[in-house]
Simulated assay, not measured.
Amino acid sequence: MNIALIAHDKKKDDLVQFATAYKLTFAKHHLFATGTTGMRIQEATGLPITRFQSGPLGGDQQIGAMIAQNNMDAVFFFRDPLTAQPHEPDITALVRLCDVYSIPLATNMGTAELLIRGIDEGLLDWRKIVNEKSDENE
């Protein structure tokens, strides 16, 4: 599975902590992240992560492009609903894309716990079928 990891500045520590707690699950998948978030998770966990640009430089849009091509299977975007800064990634576009392509999206620790457990238990195996069909159409 392809999994995206993004976090607003004030939520980066939470996402690093989450990725550390579920390192064994994340290690089984291909991880993608915006620049700074990906670097921090890599440093804390040692997990291989494909890092895109930082959010302000378009990293969230690069992840959005993968979603639009149906090449992303789950998104963890820990957002700060109260004090997000103007330079931080815009979650609205990613939410829209996830809804269009039926990509599971966790925006906080609670939904992230449910999503990671679903991934761990194989409840997102239906994405493999979507990916196989996508490969056939290329």
Results as ranks from 00 to 15, higher is better:
residue 92 T to A: 12
residue 104 P to W: 04
residue 47 L to E: 03
residue 89 P to F: 06
residue 66 M to K: 10
residue 109 M to T: 15
residue 135 D to I: 11
residue 99 D to H: 12
residue 87 H to C: 14
residue 132 E to C: 00
residue 131 N to H: 07
residue 76 F to Y: 06
residue 51 R to N: 12
residue 115 L to A: 02
residue 65 A to M: 07
residue 119 I to R: 03
residue 138 E to L: 07
residue 21 A to T: 07
residue 116 I to R: 01
residue 33 A to W: 02
residue 101 Y to C: 10
residue 19 A to P: 01
residue 117 R to W: 10
residue 61 Q to R: 12
residue 46 G to S: 05
residue 111 T to C: 01
residue 136 E to Y: 13
residue 91 I to W: 11
residue 58 G to E: 07
residue 92 T to G: 09
residue 64 G to F: 06
residue 124 L to Q: 00
residue 55 G to I: 01
residue 71 N to T: 12
residue 106 A to T: 07
residue 101 Y to H: 09
residue 131 N to T: 15
residue 138 E to N: 08
residue 106 A to C: 00
residue 134 S to Y: 14
residue 52 F to K: 06
residue 62 Q to C: 01
residue 135 D to H: 09
residue 69 Q to H: 13
residue 38 G to W: 01
residue 99 D to N: 14
residue 2 N to L: 03
residue 134 S to N: 14
residue 41 I to G: 01
residue 66 M to C: 08
residue 92 T to S: 13
residue 87 H to M: 09
residue 127 R to Q: 12
residue 48 P to C: 00
residue 47 L to Q: 04
residue 25 T to P: 05
residue 8 H to M: 05
residue 135 D to V: 06
residue 16 V to G: 06
residue 59 G to A: 07
residue 136 E to G: 00
residue 10 K to I: 08
residue 45 T to K: 02
residue 134 S to C: 09
residue 30 H to E: 14
residue 51 R to Q: 11
residue 55 G to F: 00
residue 31 L to I: 08
residue 99 D to T: 12
residue 105 L to G: 00
residue 15 L to I: 08
residue 65 A to D: 08
residue 68 A to M: 10
residue 10 K to L: 06
residue 3 I to F: 00
residue 94 L to R: 00
residue 49 I to R: 00
residue 40 R to Y: 03
residue 126 W to K: 09
residue 133 K to E: 13
residue 116 I to W: 06
residue 75 V to C: 05
residue 36 T to Q: 13
residue 109 M to Q: 10
residue 55 G to K: 05
residue 37 T to L: 06
residue 54 S to R: 07
residue 132 E to W: 03
residue 133 K to G: 13
residue 82 L to D: 14
residue 95 V to I: 09
residue 114 L to M: 14
residue 10 K to T: 14
residue 110 G to T: 15
residue 112 A to N: 02
residue 55 G to P: 03
residue 33 A to M: 00
residue 72 M to R: 02
residue 137 N to H: 12
residue 93 A to L: 11
residue 111 T to V: 12
residue 124 L to Y: 04
residue 70 N to H: 11
residue 18 F to Y: 06
residue 99 D to L: 08
residue 16 V to Q: 06
residue 52 F to Y: 07
residue 118 G to Y: 10
residue 7 A to I: 12
residue 102 S to P: 03
residue 33 A to C: 02
residue 34 T to Y: 08
residue 97 L to R: 02
residue 76 F to T: 02
residue 100 V to S: 10
residue 97 L to F: 15
residue 33 A to Q: 04
residue 83 T to M: 12
residue 75 V to L: 13
residue 117 R to N: 13
residue 42 Q to H: 08
residue 23 K to P: 03
residue 126 W to Y: 15
residue 100 V to Q: 13
residue 68 A to P: 05
residue 55 G to C: 07
residue 110 G to D: 15
residue 71 N to Q: 15
residue 93 A to T: 13
residue 76 F to I: 05
residue 79 R to T: 13
residue 2 N to E: 14
residue 68 A to Q: 15
residue 61 Q to E: 15
residue 83 T to A: 12
residue 124 L to M: 10
residue 44 A to W: 05
